[in-house]
């Protein structure tokens, strides 16, 4: 399935990226999406992203909830006029017969407050199952996008369940003779224990502060890419604290605000540097 998607989107001219090296709560947070979607340069990419959402763990007991799962992320910037047709074609490349199934686009507007990002789009339903989140970005890091990118995020487990007719992700055949559960169930159990019970609150709070500081100083030194990694680390520390139940409603808003401020600073710096580079290239 992943191979089919890679093949299809590579043929569409996408740069095939690899998963990012720090914890992300969504493929959107990968700099290949978040930063590359800023500014005036066209960009097409596709990649698998393992997403880490400490809150969603269920100790491997619930067949639908995991703290770690996979997204397949596609960005077309700018969105071509036939972008939806291309997306539907990707489903056909997976063997979904669009005439036999009921495929629908159901309103779903997206926002990611920690990144100061929002867009309008849909959930794509196939016979009632949500298989993709589809978004036209409008703002990232509080900055209006120049070329409107289309983002397609396939939920790989969901899609696989649909294709294989399985009712539990654990039963998915991940490789011949090997189920998803064989590979990930134990990890779900252990990580859930860590996320909900053991993650050290004080240390996480301190880490959040450190990453925030480091991000700031990297912004001062005009290094947006490393600075952005620290935004991601702040975000992950926040998610862990949230899973530990260590954050109240108002504190929550404050934490989100802090991460958003960092994301905005990094986005602005990234744009500044990019336009300077262009200036030099032109000269």
């Amino acid at each position: 399935m992943i191979r089919a998607l890679e093949g299809y989107w590579a043929d569409q001219g996408c740069v095939l990226m690899q998963p990012y090296h720090t914890e992300l709560a969504a493929g959107t947070m990968n700099p290949a999406t978040f930063l590359r979607c800023l500014g005036p340069k066209p960009w097409k990419t596709a990649y698998v992203e393992p997403v880490i959402r400490p809150q969603d763990g269920r100790y491997g007991e619930n067949p639908y909830r995991f703290q770690h799962y996979f997204q397949y992320q596609v960005i077309l910037k700018p969105a071509p006029e036939d972008v939806l047709d291309r997306y539907f074609e990707s489903l056909e490349s997976l063997g979904i017969d669009l005439r036999r199934h009921d495929v629908r686009l159901v309103e779903d507007d997206w926002e990611q407050p920690t990144l100061g990002a929002w867009g309008l789009g849909w959930e794509v339903w196939c016979d009632g199952m949500e298989i993709t989140q589809w978004t036209y970005f409008q703002q990232l890091g509080g900055v209006d996008v120049e070329l409107v990118p289309a983002e397609m995020t396939y939920g790989l487990e969901r899609l696989a369940m649909f294709l294989q007719g399985k009712r539990s992700a654990f039963e998915l055949e991940w490789a011949p003779g090997v189920t998803w559960g064989d590979v990930y169930r134990e990890s779900e159990r252990e990580w859930s224990a860590y996320n909900f019970e053991l993650a050290p609150v004080d240390a996480l709070e301190a880490r959040f502060d450190q990453h925030e500081q480091e991000c700031r100083s990297l912004v001062e030194r005009r290094l947006p890419l490393p600075a952005y990694d620290h935004v991601l680390k702040c975000s992950h520390a926040f998610n862990l604290l949230d899973a530990r139940g260590a954050i109240s409603v108002t504190e929550r808003a404050a934490y989100i605000g802090r991460v958003r401020t960092l994301a905005r600073e990094v986005a602005q710096l990234y744009l500044e540097l990019e336009s300077e580079d262009d200036g030099e290239a032109a000269a």
Binding site: R99, R100, H101, D102, V103, D127, G128, M129
Partner: peptide, 15 residues
Amino acid sequence: NGGDADTVRAGNEVV
């Protein structure tokens, strides 16, 4: 919105 009735029904029931 369309599709083969049995396929679509079965899919929705699973969901």
